[in-house]
Amino acid sequence: MTISDAALARSVAEEAGRLLCAIRLRGDLEGKALGAAGDAEANAAILARLRAERPGDHILSEEAGDDRRRCAHSRVWIVDPLDGTREYAEGRADWAVHVALAIDGAAQIGAVALPATGTVFATDDARVPHGPLPARPRMVVSRSRPPGIALRVAEAIGADTIAMGSAGAKAMAVVAGDAEIYLHDGGQFEWDNCAPVAVALAAGFHASRIDGRPLVYNCADPLLPDLLICRPELAAQVLAAIAAG
């Protein structure tokens, strides 16, 4: 029996996560060499599995050459084999594996594995957010390069900021209820956010560009530099604060 797209995304993300943990546990590499090995080995495993299971689909991966023939196809897997290479190499937990399927430009299917914590968030079991909003919303931002716009918006709406590593870890903090807002501007690509966006949308969260436009995938240029994922109750307020400058 053919595995469903959602189950495949989850399985591939979990498999790559186990591989990455094993590479780190070997102890024979460190620093940039460890990150490079993780990127390469996880990418090879993901591509091999997707090509075997979905030979008719195309793939866009951060760690592989871009075959622009994908632009003419409806179904494209968009993957980041190791999101947060720096965090992975430093022995931290806030790194992720992203496996997503974009259909006709929309992030339809996705899985985000957080292997260091043994957690996987996926569109096949996404949970609609529950519970009241806190008095002061929490916004996750980059621990190394928090974008100025995020800090300005946090001040404008009275949000507390939480520094965190990879894009996937930050987005899943919102999905898990550990934060309410993830706002980014200044340099991402489709593989950085396609899987997180698919999971967030399936769980009932708002996800858009920072001007409110939809996020579109499988573009000829995979640069997709800005992103807002947040509780739906906060979307209008955050977008208004962004527009106000």
Rank of each mutant, 00 (worst) to 15 (best):
D178E: 13
R10T: 15
I162D: 05
A44V: 12
D94S: 13
A107D: 02
L228C: 02
M1Y: 08
A7T: 15
I210D: 05
C21H: 03
I46K: 03
P214Y: 11
C71D: 15
D221S: 10
G27T: 13
S74M: 09
N218K: 01
L183R: 00
A36Q: 14
R10Q: 08
E15M: 08
E180F: 00
D104I: 04
I78K: 04
S208F: 07
S74W: 03
S166D: 09
I103L: 02
A200W: 04
A163V: 11
D66L: 14
E190F: 00
Q188I: 00
D67M: 10
P214M: 09
I181A: 11
L215W: 00
A64E: 13
T85N: 08
V175F: 01
I149M: 14
D125I: 07
L223H: 04
G168H: 13
P137D: 11
T117V: 15
V120F: 00
V99A: 13
R92F: 12
Q188D: 09
R75I: 01
W191E: 12
E15T: 14
P81M: 03
A6V: 10
E90C: 05
L29W: 11
I229K: 01
A13D: 10
C194M: 07
A122M: 04
P115H: 14
R70W: 04
A179R: 00
I162L: 13
A9K: 08
L234G: 00
